[in-house]
Design a protein around this nucleic acid. Structure first.
Lengths: 338, 338
DNA sequence: ATGAAAGCGCTAACAG
DNA sequence: CTGTTAGCGCTTTCAT
């Protein structure tokens, strides 16, 4: 950006034509003679001309950039969502600016500000665990910038969204445990202010009810990470609570539970069967391997981005859409007595 | 970006002052009366004015954006590098554009083009496994855009770089195995066109030589992922090769080896001790837990970004710098007979 | 087939 | 203290 940069003017000067001609020649405009085109393109190549995307953005009122707000990039699920987003975006000639909220509401606010200032053409958001006030998100829409929620949506917020059917997936995961003969199935639940946390719990409860197992919330524990799972298991063991299955809100929680049980000599899956909810590459490398729900992060990224691009490129307004992605239960060793 | 956006002109118009006055008032310029300042800021607030970063970039010839080229975001190591980069960058008021090469050389080329077009003020690169031609990277420097290599550098390329001392870390990792009495230690090596692959192998050989164990490359296997590790172990077992330790180029390889050995009834660490090289959150969740080198991805990101910002903000040129980060060996269950 | 001019939003001399 | 002007790099009418 310093000075080394060759501009259209430089080329025009050197060729003794006008900047407009160069601009047109570069984009293969029909009005320009083949002669001129060749000369221009040749020189551009030789001078290593790089079009200035910033100038273009300013002119076109369109930055060809989309913004992503993501809770934490280090989670496998989220980074695979990003991969999906990037692939579709670059395919369509769009750049991507990624902002991490690090699960903090005010960081998320700052992210919105940054992205708006950068004049992004659209924003993909997965809200942080902490976010309770949504005025910054409304500001996005107020500025007529298309907004798509992925994975972590805000219920009742009028915007496109793509989610996975957490309720259904949780239901099937739990049913799988029921079907393998488990009766006292615990749920290690996530925060209930996140739809995801709610849905997975509700799916769990539904599956039990359907099976005629009436536990209510007696075996629901607040645990959504490795350490909390360890503590929850200890609590269960110390209180002498009888369980024969666990459905955990995510994989790390499932693994924490599994390890803690194993350390106490409890056999997995024979004594306690475990099902996680995929958020990592972990499922294949535990012993036993972990039964889990495949969240299809990459696919979610591609779907969300396509929805966003559609919004950006469409002239007229149309009603909000919600896409629900199906999540598969992948049965592995932790729930299957061989 | 569409139309809803309020500009400095709108404010000026409404207040019947000139755009320059508004611009100055907004940045608290001393020449402007407190009166005007208040009025401007008030209205700006009310109209929800967002400064247009694109226009600013064009004007200032400085985008306040840095570009990252990263092989694959889904690896824990790389995503933690990104976290480190983002934190430092945002702290300094810089945005971040992330591009994935997906380990493909031509994708990396395209990334460079994109970033240059976006007028980024500097670029952080970790080269793809496939990259053999470096002309696109030279183009960066030719355009006077500062370039910093992190982790995967190009030997002999004149640019700042931050790496970890792979040789030393590999050496210490291997020595750890030697110290615990292992004599026939295998190395599961990465691609030798990457410095990292070379260094880790050399470190391994050095440690063995130092200990008077002369194996040469007889126990070096080409294996740098889960599946290749499995195959390599099978080969070892079938050929009846005797080993009592493995130093693997990364964790997933180590885990692949560990599992395959375990499936054949071989006890870890008693019969074979294993050390990995950290690239994930995996080390804590295997059984036994995995001894590994901590790569400090986050720290690498912060250090690299600080080097870059220094380059960007400094007026004069100065010689290239190389920062070598120390990596700690974290001893866990896979190498320690309890 | 090509050029001249205006303008995207903002800032920074240079005037008053 | 405030306004005028010019210009960042590019595209795009409107002329010629």
């Amino acid at each position: 950006m310093k000075k080394g940069f060759v501009t259209i003017k430089d080329i025009a000067w050197e060729l003794k034509v006008s900047p407009s001609t160069v601009s047109r020649a570069l984009k293969d405009h029909p009005d320009i003679s083949g002669e001129t085109k060749r000369a221009v393109n040749e020189l551009a190549e030789k001078l290593n001309y790089q079009p200035n995307a910033v100038a273009l953005s300013l002119k076109q009122q369109r930055s060809n950039t989309i913004g992503i707000i993501i809770p934490e990039i280090v989670h496998y699920f989220f980074s695979s969502v990003i991969s999906g987003i990037e692939d579709v975006a670059y395919e369509a000639g769009f750049n991507v600016i990624i902002c991490q909220s690090n699960e903090m509401a005010n960081r998320e606010k700052a992210n919105v500000k940054t992205l708006l200032a950068s004049q992004v053409d659209g924003i993909l958001v997965s809200v942080s665990k902490e976010t309770k006030d949504f005025s910054h998100l409304e500001k996005i829409l107020k500025n007529k910038v298309p907004l798509i929620f992925y994975d972590r949506i805000v219920p009742g917020f009028l915007a496109d969204q793509v989610i996975i059917d957490d309720f259904d997936a949780a239901c099937r995961a739990t049913r799988h445990l029921v079907d393998s003969g488990r009766k006292r199935i615990a749920h290690f639940a996530g925060p209930q202010n996140l739809l995801i946390g709610q849905q997975r719990k509700e799916g769990y409860k539904k599956a039990l009810e359907d099976a005629g197992i009436h536990l209510g919330e007696t075996l629901v524990y607040n645990a959504d990470n490795f350490e909390k799972a360890r503590l929850a298991v200890l609590k269960i063991l110390e209180s002498g609570t009888d369980i024969d299955g666990i459905f955990a809100v995510n994989d790390l929680t499932a693994i924490g539970a599994m390890q803690t049980l194993q350390k106490r000599g409890i056999k997995i899956p024979n004594e306690v069967a475990i099902v996680g909810f995929s958020d990592g590459r972990f499922s294949g490398i535990t012993d036993p391997t972990l039964t889990s729900v495949d969240q299809h992060g990459y696919e979610m990224g591609t779907v969300a981005t396509r929805m966003l691009l559609k919004r950006i490129l469409s002239k007229e307004d149309y009603p909000c859409e919600t896409k629900v992605l199906h999540a598969n239960l992948i049965v592995r060793g932790s729930s299957q007595v061989s």
